[in-house]
Design a protein around this nucleic acid. Structure first.
Lengths: 344, 344
DNA sequence: TTGTACGCGTTATCAA
DNA sequence: TTGATAACGCGTACAA
């Protein structure tokens, strides 16, 4: 844990000279002293004290990742494969740019603010915030903010958003289903806000194009909390009998639902077709392999981090960056039963 | 971003007094000034600058989590459900203790060292290190270190390890299989080091107790790299025909293998029994639901963090903490074919 | 080309 | 009970 001061003392020179060498300020220093110092630095394995540097430069080199926890879903957010993949993308990008990533999870916006200003975080990536939370943070934190998957119009005045064309994703999938002949299609999710709302909207649009009408009962609400999930699964499985297909808001829910249906003797896709959204390991490893809407979550993280880094350099960036989706056709969606029997 | 100095100026007192109030040093300060200061602090929403505090106290309040990346497996480590669950447990514990967690991923021990000393990290949790890497780090970093899942005897002289009774885990499962009548049981993994070796050893021990002998060909090696996995799956599936059961080193591999087998028309468990290790979402959601060895990964993270925090407080801790495993019997293991046909 | 001296925000020591 | 002042390690303006 050697300091510049000590190095200077041992080398009989000033701290300025040592510092200049460290920062590669050629021209400020003679070739000879440069070599002497560099060699010595290597020998003693000098590592600058980042806190001291932060203090002197008023720059922390930290990218904060603030995750807002949701009570009902996971005891621990990071376990969500979506979140971990997102963080993976952010971490990699941030690290390669010479920054550090610090994760902070809380339900309390206040705490997030204290953390952010205490560490003097250079930039912030927000996920899982309610729309007004993001705005509240941005009015008090004057450095760049990038949100992931927010649907706040108001918020875009305050920060950049990296999102997905969720509406088109489900639209394309449900269109694919109706093209196969499905008409009675349910939608499965646990809420109707933000991303989920957009996906619901796409589903409704594709449904409408066939002339079919959406009824409130076509919305199957799963309750993810541990003590409620079994009951909600049971209920959904009986209600599902009226449909030939289910559009699920995530791969996790699609796989959960498929297992619940199969446990009750319903075959997939012969008995009922099921589609997911996300395209993660869960669906690709399952049998029947899940037909789903692909999104590149890691890329979302990478793009969010890259955008933030660009703004840190003073560049202007788009207010809104929308990543595309893509259909992944596998085995969990087929023609509806009657049509299949008729040989169509 | 108001500072103590400014607060002192505005209140016409010294920084010392303000600082004393902040740190609740009653007795050092009159009741009246205490109230004045506290009120003012609340009003201006004072947040201490952590870098400055670190510098003054030579304590960072950071717990470093250093993950050593492995080339062949994931482009990004955090995506591994094991890793994210582990981190989740660590994060929660660390945060509740008033510390911050900083993740650092690298293949380069040198870089990890620079990071650790640069940030003056108070304590370190290591995962995925080769045994000598851990030792190398510990000889240069003089603060508490806790390793997760290391099998280095030598290392225990240098740091505490939080591990699992891996050997017993597979032993119990393979014993369960042999009790069901299985004799030809293969073992599937991607390497034979550390944790994998321990699990292999437990498998061999249970096998031996039946009088069966382990041959090198009973080891099915999966190649997880994207461009090799399909070929290795194909090869393993043909070799698997000689066995009535496969003990897999992880749920991920178990599920991967089950899907590969089912894709080739082999039914599970009727055609072949498959068992996993870990007990994560992948296996519980799969159908047939995976029979597996349970471990509490989140708890591993919690215990690792708690142990580190205890050592930070100066407490002595055990050198080695071994968490238990537990069998989770579901549907992917049954009696072997011939015995089942004979009605046993 | 090199050195001196100060500031960054906080805590701690010691004197008033 | 309160207040100066030094110290933590680094960067930098300015002087030599």
């Amino acid at each position: 844990m050697i300091t510049i001061k000590e190095i200077a003392a041992r080398l009989n020179m000033s701290t300025t000279t040592v510092s200049n060498v460290i920062h590669g300020k050629d021209g400020e220093v003679s070739e000879e002293t440069r070599k002497t110092v560099e060699e010595f630095l290597r020998k003693v394995d000098y590592v600058p004290n980042i806190s001291a540097r932060n203090l002197a430069q008023n720059e922390s080199k930290i990218i904060g990742v603030a995750l807002k926890a949701r009570e009902d879903k996971y005891e621990n957010l990071i376990v969500d494969p979506f979140v971990s993949e997102l963080i993976g993308g952010i971490e990699e990008t941030v690290r390669n740019a010479g920054y550090f990533m610090m994760i902070y999870i809380s339900r309390d916006t206040e705490k997030i603010m204290r953390y952010v200003s205490g560490w003097n975080v250079d930039g912030l990536i927000l996920f899982g915030m309610l729309d007004d939370d993001g705005i509240r943070v941005s009015t008090r934190y004057k450095k760049p903010i990038v949100c992931v998957d927010t649907y706040s119009i108001e918020g875009l005045k305050h920060f950049t958003n990296v999102g997905l064309d969720d509406e088109k994703g489900t639209y394309d999938m449900v269109k694919y289903m109706t093209d196969q002949g499905h008409r009675r299609i349910a939608f499965l999710s646990d809420n109707k806000k933000g991303v989920d709302l957009a996906r619901l909207t796409g589903y409704k649009r594709a449904l409408k194009e066939t002339g079919a009408e959406f009824h409130e009962e076509d919305f199957l609400q799963i309750k993810p909390a541990a003590d409620e999930i079994e009951a909600s699964l049971e209920e959904m499985c009986t209600r599902a009998l009226k449909y030939t297909a289910i559009m699920c808001v995530s791969d996790l829910y699609a796989v959960t639902m498929m297992s619940a249906l199969m446990d009750r003797g319903i075959r997939i896709p012969e008995g009922i077709s099921v589609a997911g959204f996300d395209d993660n390991l869960l669906g690709s490893l399952y049998r029947p392999a899940l037909t789903t809407v692909h999104q590149d979550v890691k890329k979302k993280g990478v793009v969010a981090a890259e955008t933030l880094l660009r703004r840190l350099k003073g560049e202007e960036t788009e207010r809104q960056i929308i990543l595309p989706t893509r259909l992944v056709i596998r085995d969990s969606v087929t023609k509806p039963r009657k049509l299949a029997l008729a040989g169509l």
